[in-house]
Design a protein around this nucleic acid. Structure first.
Length: 404
RNA sequence: CGGGGUGUAGUAUAAUGGUAGUACGCUUGCUUUGGGAGCAUGUAGCCUGAGUUCGAUUCUCAGCACCCCGACCA
């Protein structure tokens, strides 16, 4: 892509209201635009990252055998009334302009919707286990949106739900999902702890959260860095300085960002929608469920918090909007055009800064945008290309082949 | 939702009870090309409403917006 046609303009200054690093850098780099408190647009660069992250999540969920689908964002009142969640205060309710009563909620979760759908598809033990997920915008009336895209009133989420015939089968899937989640976060360049936690409005069971240590996090967790034992403060049995119950290491207290969670739901939702299956023994039994969330947009913000320096963002290659940032300092631009076309031909996602601005501007912008590989063509480089990785100070000369 | 703070140009900021200044950006022209180039040029602003006052961007009140702390939070 030619940068001159990219719908994005970077800024030297962050908006005065952007306090956290992710907000300041994502807005300066034109990855996102704040429309309202806690409500963001994803500009072309940011949307590319969202899509990269979502695709990583899709690959891992598909590998679990889950089915991607899409449910309505308008959730009928009947669903939430069935589980007494119509009145949960994080919800938004909507009605038509000329209607007297609220008929829908803007979806903040979809246990009810999918359980009801499943009740029309699951009737025999042959129909389970089954799981499905979606990537969708969720709406939550956050009393206090904060920290850029880390906590918004509207955000992009992957939510998955699973349906099982037995507790054993559920447990097995739950553990596999834990591993899939660990894969997702590792692939996104994040070190996430899997903590024991409480389930809030979703379940009374012990649940698990995936937490990335960061000063801007809202959760307090206790972790053992040695064996990675971890608990959320809300259910903690240890405190800072205690011996780890698993390995006798020393427990540390950390603040962390919750990037995902998994919940055993038991039969709470299947009971509400009379979701039963006929067993091999001819007896009807309730379906055992789980739900599994990953905040896709929050993940982008978390990566920004973890991977940046004074000059700007430092995207892991796996989620970067482009693989190569091509800078051209020459007058003619011919060599850069050739390199750009060669890279395009080989399927390398390249952003070519073809703007008529100074080298200093291009270099500073490249640091701000944080694309992993910077390739410079100038009068100094001759027939070669200067290659520098964003996460390293090393600069070396190479050829197109070194970029592939 | 409780408490506090802040609203000045596209962005960041300054000053002021008497017609608002700087920087960045943007326009145009010339020069320039390895760390957000130089000179010139033009562009653009006091959140909304009420009150006090001869006069309010400035003071008071209300509303709205945003931010911070807390509560809340799959």
């Amino acid at each position: 892509m030619r940068q001159s046609s990219l719908f994005a303009k970077t800024s030297k200054t962050a908006p005065s209201d952007a306090v956290s690093a992710n907000a300041a850098l994502l807005e300066r780099g034109a990855f996102v635009y704040k429309n309202s408190a806690g409500v963001y647009s994803y500009l072309p660069l940011g949307w590319r990252i969202i899509k990269k992250i979502a695709d990583i999540v899709r690959e891992e969920m598909d590998a679990l055998g889950s089915n991607e689908m899409l449910m309505p964002a308008l959730v009928d009142k009947k669903y939430l009334e069935a589980t007494d969640r119509w009145g949960v205060d994080v919800g938004y309710r909507v009605r038509g302009i000329d209607e007297a009563v609220d008929a829908f909620a803007l979806g903040w979760t979809h246990e009810e919707v999918l359980t009801e759908i499943a009740s029309h598809h699951i009737s025999s033990y042959r129909d389970v286990p089954f799981s499905a997920y979606q990537v969708q915008t969720k709406f939550r009336n956050e009393a206090r949106a904060k920290s850029g895209i880390l906590r918004g009133k509207e955000f992009i989420m992957k939510d998955m739900y699973s349906f099982h015939a037995s507790q054993e089968d559920f447990d097995s899937f739950y553990e596999k999902t834990k591993q899939a989640y660990a894969n997702v976060f590792a692939r996104c360049g994040l070190d996430a702890y899997c903590t024991r936690a409480a389930g809030g409005a979703f379940t009374g069971n012990i649940t698990h959260e995936f937490q990335v240590v960061s000063p801007v996090g809202e959760d307090v967790i206790y972790v053992c860095p040695k064996c990675r034992y971890a608990e959320n403060k809300e259910v903690a049995t240890v405190v800072q300085g205690d011996a780890c119950p698993e390995c006798k290491g020393v427990i540390e207290e950390k603040t962390a960002i919750e990037v995902g969670n998994i919940f055993p739901l038991g039969t709470k939702y299947s009971d509400a929608f009379n979701l039963k299956f006929l067993g091999e023994d001819g007896v009807k039994k309730p379906v055992i469920m789980g739900s599994y969330g990953i905040g896709i947009s929050r993940l982008m913000g978390t990566i920004a918090e973890v991977h940046h320096d004074d000059a700007g963002l430092v995207w892991p290659a796996s989620v970067s909007p482009f693989a190569v940032h091509l800078l051209d300092f020459t007058k003619s631009g011919d060599a850069a055009k050739n390199a750009y076309e060669a890279l395009q031909k080989r399927g390398i996602a390249v952003l070519w800064d073809d703007r008529q601005v100074s080298p200093g501007d291009k270099l500073a912008t490249a640091d701000l945008l944080g694309i992993p590989v910077r390739a410079v063509i100038s009068e100094k480089t001759g027939d070669m290309i200067e290659i520098k990785r964003r996460n390293s100070a090393e600069v070396k000369l190479g050829t197109i082949n070194d970029l592939i």
